[in-house]
């Protein structure tokens, strides 16, 4: 099971970066350490990874407890719970796609300016001029894929009854995350500022005009009035609040940009953290009780 140098660091192996421990007591010539052993026994490596490589049971447990990225997981899980044909991995895939969207999104923000003057030109330049010319493709296809994987994740959770007690609340958090995923995609749809974008958002946001009470053309729009003067007009209704204007224009572009790049991702990140936390607290990943 692995080389002794990995399992028992310092056991007869010296490194130029660490103090030789046992060599003073030994008269035997030391074997030449491999480069990997040199690296793994160096002070730098050991300062990052506080324990030997996870090759034996003890260290496989320790790695899960000490590594920041791995500590989202428990130390052990039910074998049936992680069987691919049972779990489908769609929640994890969705999270990974969220990370892909974050990274490619930040890179896209280096190039893109959300103004009427530049938005479309920047998207063209991203395709024709910028190096890594598939940045926008990765972002857009990743976004479509994320919507699909969220649905598949919920589908699996429903079909295995995994929303049942004690996991009710986490299902609710998940539904909010579904909504945020759709809103992320919807707000991002406008940013290329082409015909597809502006009209899809126009069709979508026209609905807000019909919000009951709060929409200019919604049921009971006349309820909110002061001395017979309507409070809900084209310039103050729910659609105006969403678009920042009476129609999809520069204000909308700016508003959707901020929502897409800052507000919704932050909310989603917080809820993802809660979602993962509650998976652990509510009995671990789905498996039969």
């Amino acid at each position: 099971m692995g080389r002794p140098g990995i399992l028992h660091p310092g056991n007869g192996v010296t490194s130029i970066l660490s103090f030789p421990r046992s060599s003073a007591h030994s008269l035997r010539p030391l074997p030449m350490p491999s480069l990997g052993e040199l690296v793994r026994n160096s002070q730098i490596w050991k300062s990052v990874f506080r324990h030997p490589a996870p090759l034996d049971r003890r260290n496989r447990i320790v790695v899960m407890l000490t590594n920041f990225f791995l500590h989202l997981h428990p130390v052990s899980v039910k074998k049936q719970g992680i069987a691919l044909s049972y779990t489908w991995c769609m929640g994890g895939v969705t999270f990974f796609l969220f990370l892909v969207e974050t990274v490619t999104g930040v890179l896209l923000m280096f190039y893109y300016r959300p103004t009427l003057e530049w938005a479309y030109a920047d998207i063209l330049a991203l395709r024709d001029v910028a190096s890594l010319g598939i940045l926008r493709e990765l972002h857009r296809w990743g976004a479509h894929a994320m919507v699909i994987t969220v649905w598949l994740h919920m589908y699996r959770v429903f079909l295995t009854g995994s929303y049942k007690p004690p996991r009710e609340f986490n299902w609710v958090v998940g539904v909010v995350l579904l909504l945020l995923t759709l809103l992320l995609s919807f707000t991002g749809y406008l940013l290329p500022w082409d015909q597809l974008a502006i009209w899809a958002i126009t069709v979508g946001s026209n609905m807000a005009r019909a919000t009951p009470i709060l929409g200019y053309e919604g049921p009971f729009q006349g309820v909110l009035n002061v001395d017979g003067i309507d409070m809900i007009t084209q310039g103050s209704d729910a659609r105006f609040g969403l678009l920042g204007a009476r129609f999809v224009g520069e204000e909308t572009l700016n508003r959707f940009y901020v929502l897409h790049c800052v507000a919704i991702p932050l909310a989603a990140a917080l809820l993802i953290a809660i979602h993962f936390w509650r998976v652990r607290k509510d009995g671990g990943i789905s498996a039969p009780l």
Partner: peptide, 16 residues
């Protein structure tokens, strides 16, 4: 099927 096997496995390496 899911209840046939109650075995637990370590997350490293089986899941990671």
């Amino acid at each position: 099927l899911e209840k046939l096997d109650d075995e637990k496995v370590l997350v490293w390496p089986d899941l990671v």
